[in-house]
């Protein structure tokens, strides 16, 4: 099932809001867990089985520990650490899973198209698209710098922490600046930055599944707001 990028962005927005409100009653816990399961299921439908499984296990363990082993009466340093750890995971992992799902399953073309439909200025959209494009580049460059350091035997910077960072960062910055410069020259010759309004090859349509998802997430957010702050 392919969701519209706009739906995905809306999901990120709602989940982030829910994450910031603590669940206190069983009903709120149920809503929170349900909201977390949605992106996991979506990851499975997009064939990202490994990451879905990993998130599910991590979240499951944290929940089980929190409710099964720990209580308000728990004492000791291990229990304190565990409590802190589990609370952070249970609290914030839902947002992380959703963000992961969105980043992994959205093509840049679709994302740009969605931003245009929402009338976001091209300047912002293009910058975000370039950032996404640059991550793999940085990864590649960094890998070859690491190789070079390994061959020279300077992985540890000769025991000097500042050098360790310097040896990595300086070649990396040099090559990224060069790539960035060549990239903008290449993009300009292909018409980027013209006065004409950019179009997009992908035309997006909100489908039934999208609306269903939007309604479900609005409901979840409403439950949280109403039961926490109104009732």
């Amino acid at each position: 099932m392919r969701l519209d990028p706009r739906t995905k962005l809306f999901m990120v927005f709602v989940v982030s809001a829910i994450v910031m409100m603590s669940a206190t009653t069983p009903l709120l816990w149920a809503v929170r867990i349900a909201v977390t399961m949605v992106p996991i299921v979506l990851l499975i439908t997009e064939k990202h089985y490994a990451s879905a499984f990993r998130f599910l296990v991590l979240y499951g363990i944290a929940l089980a520990l929190l409710f099964g082993l720990l209580s308000e009466g728990s004492t000791g340093i291990v229990a304190a650490l565990l409590l802190g750890y589990c609370c952070i995971i249970v609290q914030f992992l839902p947002a992380m899973i959703t963000a992961w799902y969105v980043v992994r399953t959205t093509k840049i073309g679709d994302f740009v198209s969605a931003m245009q439909r929402m009338h976001v200025p091209d300047g912002i959209t293009i910058s975000l698209a370039v950032v996404m494009r640059f991550f793999p580049t940085i990864k590649e460059e960094y890998a070859s710098i690491r190789d070079a350091m390994k061959m020279r035997g300077v992985m540890l910077g000769g025991g000097n922490a500042a050098k360790m960072i310097e040896f990595r960062m300086i070649p990396l910055l040099f090559s990224c600046v060069n790539i960035g410069d060549e990239l903008s020259a290449a993009a300009i010759t292909r018409g980027l930055g013209g006065k004409v309004k950019r179009t997009s090859a992908t035309e997006l349509h909100m489908k039934a599944a999208d609306w269903l998802m939007v309604v479900a997430f609005i409901a979840a957010a409403a439950v949280f707001v109403v039961f926490k702050y109104v009732v």
Binding site: K107, I108, L183, A187, R190, G191, T199
Partner: peptide, 26 residues
Amino acid sequence: NPRSQFFSVDTDGEIVFGPENVGLPP
């Protein structure tokens, strides 16, 4: 240099990048 002339991450997006810039209909 192929690594610095691409604007997209995927091949499809790269091919349509130019026509999108000049505002052709989808």
